[in-house]
Amino acid sequence: MTPAATAELPWGDVWGQDDAVETLRAAASDPASLSHAYLITGPPGSGRAPLARAFAAALIAEGADDVNTMRQVLAGTHSDLTALRTEGSIISIKEARAMATRSYLSPSAGRYRVMVMEDADRMTERTSNVLLKALEEPPERTVWILCAPSDADLLPTIRSRVRVLRLQEPEVAQVAELITARTGVDPVVAEQAARHAQRHIGMAQRLATDEASRVRRDETLRGVLRVRGISDVVEVAGQIVQAATDDAKALTAERDEAERSSLLRTVGIADGARIPPAVRSQLSALEDDQKRRATRSLRDGLDRVLTDLQSLFRDVVMLQFRPDADLINRELAEDLHELAARWTPERTLVVLDHIAETRDALEQNVQPTLALESLLVTFLSGKKP
Results as ranks from 00 to 15, higher is better:
Met1Glu: 13
Leu327Asp: 12
Leu349Phe: 03
Asp271Ile: 09
Ser262Ala: 15
Arg342Met: 09
Ala204Cys: 10
Ala258Val: 15
Gly223Met: 01
Phe321Thr: 14
Ser262Cys: 09
Asn68Val: 11
Glu373Thr: 01
Ala26His: 09
Ser311Gln: 08
Thr23Ala: 13
Val317Gly: 00
Arg195Pro: 04
Thr2Phe: 03
Ala148Ser: 07
Val130Glu: 04
Gly272Pro: 11
Leu154Lys: 02
Ala56Leu: 02
Ala197His: 12
Arg226Leu: 02
Val114Phe: 08
Ser297Tyr: 07
Glu137Gly: 03
Gln17Ile: 00
Val164Gly: 05
Arg226Pro: 01
Gln320Phe: 02
Gln239Glu: 12
Leu105Asp: 12
Ala208Thr: 00
Gly12Asp: 15
Glu171Asp: 12
Ser79Glu: 06
Arg163Asp: 09
Leu59Thr: 01
Arg322Gln: 15
Gln17Cys: 04
Leu59Asp: 06
Arg322Tyr: 14
Gln242Ser: 14
Glu118Leu: 02
Gly184Gln: 12
Gly202Tyr: 01
Ser46Thr: 05
Ala248Phe: 04
Asp289Tyr: 11
Arg255Asn: 12
Arg159Asp: 05
Leu221Gln: 02
Arg159Met: 06
Arg141Tyr: 10
Leu362Thr: 06
Arg85Ser: 15
Ala212Gly: 04
Ser29Leu: 11
Leu339Gln: 10
Arg161Leu: 07
Asp13Lys: 09
Ala26Ile: 04
Arg206Leu: 12
Lys94Ile: 08
Glu338Ser: 14
Arg260Phe: 08
Glu257Thr: 11
Arg102Trp: 14
Val164Lys: 11
Tyr112Val: 03
Ala341Phe: 03
Val236Met: 06
Gly63Phe: 11
Arg113Met: 08
Leu349Glu: 01
Thr358Val: 15
Asp288His: 08
Ala27His: 10
Ala61Gly: 01
Val114Pro: 08
Pro138Ala: 07
Arg260Asn: 10
Arg97Gly: 10
Gly272Asn: 10
Ala98Gly: 12
Ala57Ser: 03
Ala204Trp: 08
Ala181Pro: 12
His337Gln: 15
Trp11Ala: 11
His196Glu: 13
Leu283Gln: 15
Pro368Lys: 02
Tyr112Asp: 04
Val377Phe: 04
Val233His: 09
Ile355His: 01
Asp256Met: 11
Ala26Lys: 09
Asp80Lys: 09
Ser213Ala: 12
Ala54Met: 02
Glu257Tyr: 06
Pro368Val: 01
Ala56Val: 00
Leu225Pro: 03
Val73Met: 01
Thr142His: 01
Arg342Ala: 13
Arg304Ile: 00
Arg166Asn: 07
Asp308Cys: 03
Arg111Gly: 02
Ile145Gly: 05
Glu125Gln: 07
Leu298Thr: 04
Gln205Ala: 04
Arg122Thr: 05
Lys94Asn: 14
Leu154Ala: 02
Leu264Asn: 10
Ser213Tyr: 06
His196Leu: 13
Arg159Ala: 10
Ala248Pro: 10
Ala285Asn: 14
Leu251Met: 14
Ala54Val: 07
Ala278Phe: 13
Leu39Cys: 06
Gly45Trp: 05
Val172Glu: 03
Arg265Lys: 11
Arg255Ser: 13
Leu352Met: 03
Glu338Arg: 14
